[in-house]
Computed example of a mutant assay.
Amino acid sequence: MTGWELAVICAAGAVAGAINAVVGSGSLITFPTLVAIGIDPVIANVSNTIGLVPGSFTAAYGYRTELQGQRERLLRLGLASATGALIGGILLLFLDPDVFEVVVVALIAVACVLVVVQPRLNRWLAERREHAHPHGGAALWAGVLAAGIYGGYFGAAQGVLLIGLLGSFLDDHLQRVNAAKNVLALVVNAVAAVLFVMVADVDWPAVAAVAAGAMAGGFLGAKLGRRIPAPVLRGVIVCVGVVAIIVLVYG
């Protein structure tokens, strides 16, 4: 891998880290970048998940004020995220690689749709938040488990899924919901990463480049991301997602 390719991956990691902190869809930046450089899609997905862990940590740390008072909630939901991530990671490793290449195109398309409809989703959540269960209940736990399976298999837009779930079932402000989302995404990425390091093929130079960028991006995204116009973020994510689909289908 050339120095220029590593620089491009690092830059993509920085953008992804910032987007993950604010919205959650950063893998739609880094994953297609790795594929476009020529890394096998499954190895790219594995390396991307590992590389984004430091960025998930800095994003969660950046929202530490909003995390106050959420310890018990996050311990319960974190178990669901960890269990789901393990299941999703195992599916990625043991399903036929050809299945992944087919499924991931559909997942990217779904992720792009989720990003586009997020404003309407947020309005719907705001309308029903006053009736939300204060602790989420079993339905939220099951939903977070499913999101963890999705995230362990392919993490793009898991943040959007988590915000939708948490906002639907919790009686809390959106910024605290986003803070909880960052912690749960960190759990998913970390558990999947441990599994992948133990048993999967990893492109370590790509991991290092993604991690370096994601750490900076996650921290800055938590601090400054609210100033970035949401339509701009959504537009960039959808464009990258479309490029990823084209690369995977016709590349």
Score class of each variant (00 low, 15 high):
Ile39Gly: 05
Gly155Arg: 01
Ile228Arg: 04
Ala200Asn: 08
Glu5Ala: 07
Ala7Ile: 00
Asp201Glu: 13
Ala142Ser: 12
Ala139Glu: 05
Thr2Ser: 11
Leu233Ile: 13
Ile149Met: 10
Ala147Val: 10
Leu86Cys: 11
Arg176Thr: 10
Gly26Thr: 04
Val242Ala: 14
Asn189Tyr: 08
Ala111Tyr: 02
Arg120Leu: 10
Ile246Gly: 11
Ile149Ser: 04
Cys10Phe: 03
Pro41Lys: 09
Val202His: 07
Ile19His: 04
Val105Gln: 11
Leu140Arg: 07
Trp4Ala: 02
Asp172Arg: 14
Leu91Met: 13
Ala216Thr: 06
Gly137Lys: 10
Ala82Val: 08
Val103Trp: 09
Val99Pro: 01
Gly62Trp: 05
Ser168Met: 13
Leu107Asp: 02
Ala132Asn: 08
Asn45Arg: 03
Phe57Trp: 14
Arg64Ala: 11
Glu127Ser: 09
Gly78His: 13
Pro32Cys: 13
Ile149Lys: 05
Glu101Asp: 12
Ala138Gly: 12
Ala11Cys: 07
Ala179Met: 10
Leu92Arg: 05
Thr49Phe: 05
Ala111Val: 02
Ile149Ala: 08
Glu127Arg: 14
Val116Ala: 13
Val199Lys: 10
Pro119Lys: 00
Ile163Asp: 01
Leu125Asn: 06
Pro32Thr: 12
His135Glu: 15
Ser168Ala: 13
Lys223His: 14
His173Ala: 14
Ala200Tyr: 12
Gln158Pro: 00
Ser56Cys: 12
Gly3Tyr: 06
Phe100Arg: 02
His135Thr: 15
Pro231Phe: 12
Phe94His: 14
Glu130Asp: 15
Leu93Phe: 09
Gly88Ile: 03
Leu75Lys: 14
Gly155Ala: 08
Ile19Arg: 01
His173Tyr: 15
Ala21Tyr: 02
Ile29Phe: 10
Arg73Glu: 10
Gly151Phe: 04
Val242Leu: 15
Gly51Ser: 04
Lys223Trp: 11
Ala138Val: 12
Gly217Val: 01
Gly38Ser: 06
Ala192Gln: 01
Asn178Val: 03
Phe169Val: 05
Trp141Asp: 02
Gly24Phe: 05
Phe219Asp: 03
Ala132Glu: 08
Ser27Val: 02
Pro41Cys: 12
Gly24Glu: 00
Ala147Gln: 01
Val22Trp: 07
Thr49Ala: 13
Ala60Phe: 11
Phe57Asn: 00
Gly225Val: 01
Thr83Asp: 06
Ala85Met: 08
Cys10Thr: 07
Val144Gly: 06
Asp201Asn: 09
Arg64Met: 09
Ala139Trp: 13
Val35Gly: 08
Val188Gly: 00
Val115Cys: 07
Leu165Lys: 04
Phe196Asp: 04
Arg120Cys: 03
Ile108Gly: 04
